[in-house]
Amino acid sequence: MTIALERPVGTTDPAALVGPEVTERLARRITTDHPEISEPTARRIVGQAAAFIAASGRLPGQSLAPSELVDYGWHAFILHTVDYAEFCERVSGGFVHHVPTDEGDEMPGGAQATRERTLAAITAAGYTVDEELWPNMADCTQCHAGCTDSPNSGKKK
């Protein structure tokens, strides 16, 4: 059996990967959990999280990582398990796991190299990168115990 994965032609707005209903649901979750984030920014975060997840699913084991803001979108998406599982299957042919990094582990090549590797993977997958949402990297890769908003990080979820 062959699985036809959704692949963009040319450079594509990653928000197109997630339907409007799911986008609004995830954006509401982001603004509820992070009231400092506006609704328009939350929608942009959803799009970048979708692009990150799609690229990660196509390149497992490549040590890709989200930015702190994009990680908020990934966490919101994971909470909506039915939507998340369907999305992963559609864009990458299988579930994209969120794997914790151990405390003290560093990203291969450092945060800057991880950022460059991740943004290159998103671009190579055909998605537009929203540079403003990638100022700093989350402490996790393709994450619970090591993520920026986990209970173990000292930040409020």
Rank of each mutant, 00 (worst) to 15 (best):
W134A: 02
D83K: 01
G61W: 12
A42G: 12
C88Y: 02
I30E: 00
A76H: 05
L119F: 07
C88P: 01
G146I: 04
K157A: 10
I3G: 01
G73T: 03
F52G: 04
R7W: 01
K156S: 06
P20W: 03
T11Q: 15
V129S: 05
F77I: 06
T32S: 11
P151W: 03
S56N: 02
K155Q: 11
T23A: 15
E86M: 13
A27P: 05
G61S: 06
R58K: 13
L59M: 14
E103P: 14
L133H: 00
E68C: 04
V96N: 02
S150R: 10
I122A: 07
P8S: 13
V46R: 00
F77C: 02
Y72M: 08
T31S: 06
R7Q: 08
L64G: 02
M1H: 11
K156F: 09
P14Y: 08
P20K: 06
E116H: 10
A145Y: 15
L5S: 01
T2F: 09
D105N: 07
E103Q: 15
G109N: 10
F52S: 04
L5I: 02
I30F: 03
T148W: 10
I3M: 07
A121S: 10
E89A: 13
H98M: 10
S67N: 06
R115L: 14
A51K: 00
T148G: 15
D149A: 15
K157T: 12
W134Y: 06
E103C: 07
R44G: 15
A42E: 11
G10I: 13
L64V: 06
I3F: 00
A51R: 01
A16C: 09
S56Y: 01
A16W: 07
V70K: 06
L5R: 05
P20F: 00
C140A: 10
P66Q: 10
G19T: 09
D139P: 04
R25H: 05
A65V: 09
G110R: 08
I45T: 09
I3R: 02
D33M: 10
A15V: 08
I30A: 11
T41N: 07
Y84W: 06
M137A: 05
